[in-house]
Amino acid sequence: MDKKIMNVSSNPHVRSEVSTQGIMFDVLIALVPAAFFGVFNFGLRALLLIATCMITCILSEFVFERLTKRKNTIFDLSAAVTGLLLALNLPAEFPVWMAVIGSVFAIIVVKQLFGGIGQNFMNPALAARCFLLLSFGTRMTTFVYDGVTSATPLAVIKNGGTYELKAMFLGTTGGTIGETCVPAILAGALFLLFRRVISLRIPLTYIITFVVFIVLFTDIKFDYVTIACELCGGGLMLGAFFMATDYVTSPITPAGKIWYGIILGLLTGLFRFYGPNAEGVSYAIIIGNLLVPIIEKFTVPYAFGREKERFFGRLFAKRKKDKEVKA
């Protein structure tokens, strides 16, 4: 055998099968039930919006990266996920050209201008939704269901009315394309949990905190039917399982995830019950995103075998060392 030089590299020499593309593909699959129900519920108009947003997002990523001579990243599917999520957050009757603006904003302003995948400090889809809410407020809050324009169930409840829980759970109500059907969202979430793409830490603390907020700070108290309506209504389920769990814009530390969930729950409660609108999930998550760096900073886990320093801090460790030196 000749002395041919072989590959050398640092350990480890094997890699797992997981890839960014695979994860994004899993998220896309998980969103299929919600999207499918949206099309079934709101008609082909919903499909048109989904297609528009996804194509615009992918195209703007491609064009931007071409223009700035960066590596093409459309095949990691993150732009497709952003597009789909944005579409699921729009009402079915939303004008197509506005959806295009929203998609371009999501990819170019929120994601690419901050350095592309992994660098954005806000969830692009949600930032775009908020941008559209501020720009085209009326169109974003006009919900047509069965040919009738009506207030969303949450708005009805906020104004002192009641709404049928079963309809809110199954999603046969007005609302954005992907947020209404709780079983479809939970099916997708279960798939992601099963594939270990997301963990329950953030969604569960988010939802529990929100319920606690309702019990403690609102007039609903222990009226469990209304509590259930609040949980099923609006973007809470979609937000908790698909947007609050967004990797890039949620804390990486295990304890930070809990704090993040708590903050989201409190903010959502604050916005929904004390704000002018019936809905507050998008704003809560966006503001939560902004707090991520500080949450991460204060929740660095104690390394294995260093837990004792938790209570006494470095001082204790230092004293102990001094003692050892003296001894």
């Binding site: 960014t20 992994g118 890039v248 990486i252 390394a303």
Partner: peptide, 21 residues
């Protein structure tokens, strides 16, 4: 490719560190 902050390294680390950071 770029880090997407998924935290898989955090849950895999036996020493409870934050490898990506």
């Amino acid at each position: 490719t770029e880090c997407i902050n998924c935290g898989k390294c955090v849950s895999a680390c036996p020493e409870r560190l934050l490898p990506t950071l």
